[in-house]
Amino acid sequence: MALIRIAVEKVGAGPLIVVGHSLGGLIALRYALDEPGAVKGLVLINPTTHPRPGGLPWFQRVAEVVFVGPLIWTVLLPATLPMLDRLITRLFRPEPPVRDYAGRTALALALTPRRFRNSMKEYSDLRDHLVAVAPRYPDVTVPTVVVVAEADPIVPAAVHGDVLAKVLPHGRLVRIPGAGHMAHHRHAEIIAAEIERLAGLPPA
């Protein structure tokens, strides 16, 4: 949170409408809780907000153990690149991926050894963060739009967004039928309209 605060102060921005997707939703919530004067509103897209019932799935527990050694660092990128298309398809399901998503986002950079290991560490620590922060959600005082994709298999609304919207004092739930995890790519106009509404801009 300190890095975000410093960056915002340097550009002289704020108070902000903070938009967060997936794990970024948790970061946006934490920023609103820790820096309330710096936030005007939140738009959270398929946010990760609550610990998964029953703990981590088995494959994630295995990954935490496997993806740390020097050998996996060496083989990870060349072994994974041929599977990028399949990974992207799973990320967008049940909707089709946007064209050239890997190229436009430089997705392969996330699979370089140091970045991948850091990502695994973040996910390893995620449950503890969620357990600690979830009881504080009723203290979020700014208007918050929770956008949930009803067909998201990665961050299910029933575990995360739906539960969050019920405890926010100024929360509003927006549901997108048939949408998957990457709703901000496939349904950008809906999300942009919510951001503009919070900003007080007239409808486009």
Score class of each variant (00 low, 15 high):
Ala2Val: 15
Ile4Cys: 13
Ile4Thr: 13
Ala7His: 04
Glu9Thr: 11
Val11Asn: 06
Val11Ala: 09
Val11Pro: 10
Gly12Cys: 02
Gly12Asn: 02
Val18Cys: 13
Val18Ser: 14
Gly20Trp: 06
Gly20Cys: 10
Ser22Asp: 14
Ser22Gln: 12
Ile27Lys: 03
Ile27Asn: 07
Ile27Trp: 02
Leu29Phe: 00
Tyr31Thr: 10
Ala32Thr: 07
Ala32Gln: 09
Leu33Arg: 06
Asp34Ala: 04
Glu35Thr: 05
Ala38Glu: 15
Val39Tyr: 04
Val39Phe: 04
Lys40Ile: 04
Gly41Tyr: 04
Ile45Phe: 04
Pro47Met: 02
Gly54Thr: 03
Arg61Lys: 15
Val62Thr: 13
Ala63Glu: 13
Ala63Val: 10
Glu64Leu: 11
Val65Trp: 11
Val65Phe: 09
Phe67Gln: 02
Gly69Asn: 15
Gly69Pro: 04
Gly69Asp: 14
Pro70Trp: 10
Pro70Leu: 06
Leu71Cys: 11
Ile72Arg: 00
Trp73Ala: 13
Leu76Tyr: 13
Leu77Glu: 14
Leu84Pro: 05
Arg86Pro: 02
Pro94Thr: 06
Pro96Gln: 03
Asp100Val: 08
Gly103Pro: 07
Thr105Ile: 00
Ala106Lys: 15
Ala110Ser: 11
Arg115Thr: 12
Arg115Ile: 11
Phe116Asn: 10
Arg117Ala: 13
Met120Arg: 12
Lys121Glu: 14
Lys121Tyr: 12
Glu122Asp: 15
Glu122Ile: 13
Ser124Tyr: 08
Arg127His: 07
Asp128Gln: 12
His129Lys: 07
His129Met: 06
Val131Asp: 09
Ala134Trp: 01
Ala134Arg: 00
Ala134Gln: 02
Pro135His: 08
Arg136Ala: 12
Tyr137Cys: 00
Pro138Thr: 05
Asp139Lys: 14
Val145Phe: 11
Val145Trp: 10
Val147Tyr: 08
Pro153Lys: 06
Ile154Gln: 08
Pro156Tyr: 01
Pro156Arg: 11
Pro156Met: 05
Ala157Tyr: 07
Gly161Phe: 04
Ala165Ser: 11
Lys166Gly: 08
Leu168Trp: 05
His170Trp: 00
Gly171Asp: 02
Arg172Ala: 08
Leu173Ile: 00
Val174Asp: 01
Val174Glu: 08
Ile176Cys: 09
Ile176Asn: 09
Gly178Phe: 06
Ala179Gln: 13
Gly180Ala: 08
Met182Asp: 08
Met182Gly: 07
His184Leu: 06
His184Phe: 08
Ala188Gln: 03
Ile190Phe: 05
Ile190Asp: 13
Ile191Lys: 01
Ala193Ile: 03
Ile195Gly: 01
Glu196Gly: 03
Arg197Ile: 00
Ala199Trp: 06
Ala199Thr: 02
Gly200Arg: 09
Pro202Arg: 09
Ala204Asp: 10
